[in-house]
Computed example of a mutant assay.
Amino acid sequence: MRFKWVLLFVIMLLLAGCQSSYWVLEKDRIGEGGSELELYANYLQMHEDVKGYQVFTISEGRKMVIVSLGSSEKDKKLEVSGVKYSPTETIVTVKRKPAPKANEKNPFILIGLDKIEGDLIVQDESGDRFEETDYQQ
Rank of each mutant, 00 (worst) to 15 (best):
G82C: 09
G127H: 08
L110R: 04
V55T: 09
K77T: 08
I111F: 02
P107T: 08
G70C: 10
S20A: 15
V122Y: 01
D28Q: 14
E60N: 14
E32Y: 10
P87A: 14
W5Q: 15
Q54T: 09
E26F: 13
E26P: 00
C18P: 05
D28Y: 13
I121M: 07
K84Q: 12
L39W: 12
E117V: 07
F56L: 08
Q54M: 11
G17P: 02
V55N: 04
T90H: 00
F130H: 07
V80A: 05
G31I: 09
S81Y: 14
L39E: 15
T93D: 08
W23H: 01
D49N: 13
N42R: 15
L110W: 04
V67N: 02
S21G: 15
T57V: 13
E131K: 09
V80S: 02
L7P: 02
L120S: 02
E73H: 08
K95C: 08
L7D: 15
L37I: 06
Y22E: 07
K101W: 06
I30P: 05
I11F: 14
R129F: 04
V92R: 00
A99F: 02
T93V: 00
V50M: 07
E117G: 01
I30A: 06
N42S: 03
G52L: 08
V10S: 14
L8I: 13
S72K: 14
G17I: 09
K74Q: 14
V94R: 03
V83W: 08
P100W: 01
L37C: 13
D114N: 13
K101A: 12
E73G: 01
K51P: 03
V83Q: 07
S72Y: 11
I11G: 04
L69A: 09
N42F: 06
R2D: 14
V10T: 10
K84N: 09
T88D: 09
S20D: 15
D134Q: 11
D75W: 03
S72L: 12
T57F: 05
A99M: 09
T90M: 00
V94W: 10
D128Q: 10
L13S: 11
F9A: 12
I121A: 07
G112F: 01
T90F: 06
V83M: 06
